[in-house]
Design a protein around this nucleic acid. Structure first.
Length: 153
DNA sequence: GCCAACGTTGGC
DNA sequence: GCCAACGTTGGC
């Protein structure tokens, strides 16, 4: 799951009182469908920092709730307000996530160096989805790299 | 700030 | 249902 750290970073989650946060603001149908139809409580997620100086994986979070209507779609003051959404017929969904652990930053640049990840959806050409599935083999590979390689600084 | 690659909108 | 115009994402 991608988040702009200037909005919500892994440190924001780590610093939150319950070390958890609502994942709001998804406004893409494919990403919504992954969240609503595929994610389940207990699933683990790579927390990816996007649109920043060093984009990449910055931590691991766990899904702790089923998808529920994203409250920001009903809030006229929110940048995520959707006038076509109603409480009876919500368009957009959120999940709650909690911190599992911060990791070293595994940059996009580094991710692209691993042939084992050449088919990863996140790395696909032109991919803009803020939420994309990670194959079990990809997950294991990245987790191993995160554990075995120390950050340069 | 640029721009490629998408996704969405709306006229027809 | 097509598709041009427009808007957004996100790396660089």
């Amino acid at each position: 799951m991608k988040s702009e750290p200037s909005d919500v970073s892994i440190d924001d989650v780590a610093g939150a009182s319950l070390r958890q946060t609502c994942w709001y603001g998804v406004r893409n149908y494919q990403a919504r469908n992954f969240m609503r139809d595929v994610m389940r409580a207990g699933d683990l997620v790579f927390f990816y920092h996007s649109s920043c100086a060093e984009p990449g994986i910055a931590g691991i979070v766990e899904i702790i709730s089923a998808a529920y209507p994203d409250p920001t779609q009903f809030d006229p003051k929110s940048r995520y307000y959707d006038p076509k959404a109603t409480v009876e017929n919500p368009r957009w969904f959120s999940v709650d996530v909690k911190l599992v652990r911060k990791t070293r930053l595994m940059s996009l640049k580094e991710l692209r160096t691993y042939s084992e990840l050449s088919d990863m959806r996140l790395l696909a050409r032109g991919n803009r989805l803020s939420i994309s599935p990670v194959e079990p083999g990809e997950w294991r590979f990245i987790e191993k790299k995160l554990d075995s390689t120390m950050a340069a600084a």
